[in-house]
Computed example of a mutant assay.
Amino acid sequence: MTDFAEPSVPVTGGAMPLLGFGTWQIADADAPAAVQAALEAGYRHIDTATGYSNQRGVGKGVAASGLARDDVFVTTKLPPDNADRVRATIEESLDQLGLDHLDLWLVHWPPNGEARPDVWEQVVQAQQDGLTKAVGVSNYSLAQIDELTEATGVTPAVNQIKWSPAEFDRTVADGLRDRGVVLEGYSPFKASNLQDPTLVSIAEAHDVDTAQVIVAWHVAHGFVVIPKSSQPERIASNAAGARVQLTEDEVDRIDGLGR
Rank of each mutant, 00 (worst) to 15 (best):
L18M: 12
W105R: 04
K162F: 01
I26R: 12
D174N: 11
Y52T: 08
I254L: 13
L183N: 06
E92N: 11
T12C: 09
V225W: 04
H218C: 12
V224K: 02
Y43T: 03
V182L: 15
E248C: 03
T75C: 12
R243E: 15
V208M: 06
I46L: 07
V135Q: 04
R179D: 12
H45Q: 04
G130V: 05
I202P: 15
A166F: 03
A49F: 04
V182K: 05
V181Q: 07
R243Q: 14
P111H: 09
D71G: 08
S201A: 15
S229T: 08
V208G: 08
G175V: 02
D146E: 10
V215C: 11
G20T: 04
D249P: 07
P232D: 00
D3T: 11
F168G: 07
R177C: 01
E6G: 15
R259Q: 14
S8C: 11
A31T: 09
L102D: 09
G136I: 06
A27Q: 13
G180W: 01
S65Q: 08
Q122M: 07
D255Y: 04
R170T: 09
P197F: 00
D81N: 09
D47F: 05
H108D: 09
T198V: 15
R179C: 13
V182G: 03
I145W: 02
G22F: 01
A38W: 01
V35Y: 03
S229E: 10
K133S: 08
L102M: 13
A115F: 04
E147R: 04
N139P: 01
D81S: 14
V11R: 11
V107M: 14
A220I: 02
T149I: 00
G98T: 02
E184P: 05
G22T: 02
